[in-house]
Amino acid sequence: MSFINYSSREINCKIVYYGPGLCGKTTNLQFIYKRMNPEARGKMISLATESERTLFFDFLPLSLGEIRGFKTRFHLYTVPGQVFYDASRRLILRGVDGVVFCADSQLTRVDANEESMENLRVNLREQGYDPDRLPMVIQYNKRDLPNVASLAELHALLNRRNVPEFEASATTGIGVFETLKTVIKLVLIDLKRGGRQ
């Protein structure tokens, strides 16, 4: 649910990075934080364990400039990927406007990706969303590693909706901004249509 403040002329949207544990959701946000103009981004908050695994969420606010006199603000969140943090994932999806599904391309993580995608769909339905209509982008991360699944295979397993998809290597930044830009566009187009009513 986007929040439009006509008094301060602001549009606020929430984008959630979802995916299995250690797929690179936090790394995406860290790269965006590092590369964004400091005036365009706020402080990044990570609620993580001592071993730097996301415990509750990471949060990064961005201000991308104005359109038609409205300041556009995007709040990026990650969910904790580990299976047993499902209750937290459900909470973070509340009020989401767009999702980036971050998949781990390694062959050993194929099952984890599928499980996480199914978990996303279940949790979206539980929050009252139609998982086939919510703006979504899929990012196939870790393409730089050996032993990765083919794109065709990942597409067949994860992208039945045929949403925009990108290859990425979040540690070096490849594909990170392409993914972000596309999900932001989808969210704004959806906003223009008046949400998913």
Binding site: M1, S2, F3, I4, N5, Y6, S7, S8, G128, Y129, L191, G194, G195, R196, Q197
Partner: peptide
């Protein structure tokens, strides 16, 4: 369930 947008206008904001 509707997931429409929440819009806050000047009069309500001032209130």
């Amino acid at each position: 369930m509707s997931q429409g947008n929440f819009i806050l206008r000047e009069p309500e904001y001032e209130a």
